[in-house]
Design a binder for these strands. Structure first.
Length: 154
DNA sequence: GCCAACGTTGGC
DNA sequence: GCCAACGTTGGC
């Protein structure tokens, strides 16, 4: 089982939506970046766990643990012309974009902020992709060691 | 294939 | 609102 970090603006997809969703499970859709798409299509598997990271908000950081309940699902929002994430280049036969379903395992007892993660950038978290400058990926792997270390901060 | 222009992301 | 970093687009 692998670990991931899923990044999203809380207003678009955040902890509150997950909490409110039936079975605390929702599609994580709308990813329109090829590198992230490849991970969602090929690498992220059912039963994998992920951190939910809130970006572009007052306090960016990791807020929850999620579990993947369904993997490699074609993103149907790309087929809907009325949808903000519509992509005329994607078809049902040849989907261009993929999504996963995620379930809220639990919110963290406290937010692990970007600032706090950065304070370990020279040490334990020197390989954490999230901390790479200019990183804009919305899906990224987290090593087992980094996963355990971040949880130990909680 | 190169590269400039432009759009988006995301922290501050 | 600003700006750096990147991805995408399109002319050549």
């Amino acid at each position: 089982m692998k670990h991931w970090l899923l990044k999203s603006e809380p207003d678009t997809f955040g902890l509150e939506q997950l909490r409110a969703a039936p079975r605390r499970t929702t599609h994580w859709d709308g990813v329109r970046n090829y590198q992230a798409r490849n991970l969602l299509r090929d690498e992220v598997k059912k039963a994998d766990e992920a951190f939910l990271y809130h970006s572009s908000c007052a306090e960016p950081g990791i807020v929850a643990i999620l579990r993947v309940t369904r993997a490699g699902v074609p993103d149907h929002t790309a087929l809907d012309a009325t949808h903000a994430h519509f992509d005329p280049g994607s078809t049902a036969e040849q989907p261009r974009w993929y999504m996963v379903d995620v379930q809220l395992v639990r919110p963290l007892r406290r937010i692990i902020t970007l600032t706090e993660l950065r304070s370990h950038q020279q040490g334990k978290l020197k390989n954490l992709q999230l901390l790479r400058t200019g990183n804009r990926l919305s899906v990224m792997p987290v090593s087992d060691a980094d996963w355990r270390f971040i949880l130990s901060l909680e």
